[in-house]
Amino acid sequence: MVAQNIFFGIIAAAMVVSAIKVVTTKNVVHAALYLVIVLAGVAAQFILVGAEFTGVTQVLVYIGAVIVLFLFGIMLTRARIGHEMDVDNERRWIAGLTALLLFAVMTYALLDAFDDTDIEANGALAPQATQAVSDSIFRDYLIPFEAVSFLLLAALIGAIVVARRE
């Protein structure tokens, strides 16, 4: 498992650095591009634990669609391309403290609960068959699936209604 751990470390480091860049960079477009790295990293982590279908979906939906949506949003709101001086509000210290506090609590709880539990404690990591996922969605979670479809429809209509010019 050494190789996996090494890859995890590399990807995780890239993700964390990029994530910090996302929330600190002064350039909106750069933020979006750093976000791409984080999202791709998440997809890579998914594949690392054998969740291939979800990893591919992550790439398709996030990098394929959501980021494009963000770039359109940036363009349409004509946010200045390039450096902006005050992209952060004056409460960023409080925000930072809050985030740190939250992280401390969560880390403590996690270490307390799963100290060095192996992720393979309940069986070796194996690529989970897409079929199992689809069976699960369309059998056990059919109603939530329908609800999500309905939600997407509602969001579609809602977004059009909200953003439409009168």
């Binding site: 509000n89 409080i94 925000a95 403290l97 506090l101 939250l102 401390a104 609590v105 969560m106 403590y108």
Partner: peptide
């Protein structure tokens, strides 16, 4: 009236509460 301020309060309170529970 800045929503982010309220959100900060909420997150901080949630963190403290979670800490107490933990």
């Amino acid at each position: 009236g800045r929503v982010q301020g309220y959100a900060a309060l909420m997150f901080a309170a949630a963190a403290v509460l979670a800490g107490v529970f933990v």
